[in-house]
């Protein structure tokens, strides 16, 4: 038996080698663009456009980041995005707990009807134009509410939270609390929320990412430039290549230098705009598998 365990068969060795090669290849393919972008963002602008950057920063400099700092529109976008993301995510979490808790209670009369109402919206929607007309008729166009309210709740996150409540908050706890004169409102506030840290962390990440990364609703509903979230500013710069060269320092007459600065600005912007979420996500990462597992259970 011992020999069998310590000496792997040829086919197992081959399997391990092939698997390691496959995993390493995938790892590198996903990792390389990230490393390249970060390195380029910290390089000299001429080094980036002349193709000297392969893996590590070449002639390290912060001129790209300096250009970002001097680009006014980006800061307006940052400020708006923080406002929309913080307010929006807070509302998202409150709404999700409000919906998920009653749905997790077996004795909630009418539970199945509510579930059906929620689930149906994941399979069928009224479409773009009716949604737009609604927001317009509610007078929300070009206000912060048009960004926050239409996406106040995601049904999938409600299902995830509901299943977690069902599994991790025993019915006996509710009964004991009720004997002590605790009502449902107090129970949600004092017990449910306090016992649901991991799942709240996961859905906070999902909502925050969705809010931070959203551009389409903003493009649809906002008209005033000063209300634009960061993603809309990025869209002009990264996708439409629409850079206000007046914002770039250096000799405005030197076209080649300006083009190089434009490219460097883009790499630095990509890094800065993605950093908030990528810094936050590792703290929640260990809960992700758990969150997905819970969400996939039928209850």
């Amino acid at each position: 038996m011992n020999t069998k365990l310590s000496k792997e068969s040829f086919s197992d060795k081959l399997f391990t080698i092939l698997n390691t090669v496959f995993m390493s290849a995938l790892f590198l393919v996903v990792l390389y663009p990230i490393v390249y972008i970060i390195s380029a963002s910290f390089s000299d602008s001429q080094a980036v456009v002349s193709g000297e950057v392969w893996l590590w920063p070449v002639r390290p400099s912060l001129e790209g980041y300096k250009a970002v700092f001097e680009y006014g529109q980006v800061w307006v976008g940052f400020r708006n995005s923080i406002l929309y993301t913080v307010t929006g995510t807070l509302i998202n979490i409150i709404m999700t707990v409000l919906a998920a808790y009653p749905l997790s209670r077996k004795d909630f009369y009418g539970k199945n009807i509510f579930m059906l109402l929620f689930m149906f919206t994941t399979m069928f929607t009224g479409g773009l134009i009716p949604a737009y007309l609604l927001v317009r008729d509610l007078g929300m166009l070009d206000t912060i509410w048009s960004i926050i309210v239409p996406g106040a709740l995601s049904v999938w996150n409600v299902i995830i939270a509901r299943t977690y409540f069902q599994m991790s908050i025993p019915h006996e706890l509710l009964e004991a609390a009720q004997l002590d004169g605790c009502n449902d409102f107090q129970f949600v506030w004092k017990v449910v929320i306090r016992l649901s840290g991991p799942i709240l962390a996961v859905i906070t990440l999902y909502y925050a990412a969705a809010n931070w990364n959203q551009y389409f609703n903003a493009m649809l509903y906002l008209k005033t430039q000063d209300h634009y979230p960061l993603q809309l500013v990025l869209k002009d710069i990264l996708v439409k290549n629409d850079v206000d060269v007046g914002m770039l320092s250096g000799d405005p007459q030197d076209a080649a230098k300006r083009e190089a600065m434009k490219t460097l600005l883009k790499y630095s912007l990509i890094v800065i705009s993605s950093a908030p979420l990528l810094v936050f996500y590792p703290f929640v990462q260990r809960y992700l598998v758990k969150g997905v597992m819970v969400g996939s259970l039928k209850g």
Partner: peptide, 24 residues
Amino acid sequence: QLYALMSLPFLYLMIFKYVPMYGA
């Protein structure tokens, strides 16, 4: 109390999901 908790999400669902379906 459970209905009271559900009222806000329910209102949201009706206005922002079902009204557009009606509008379709």
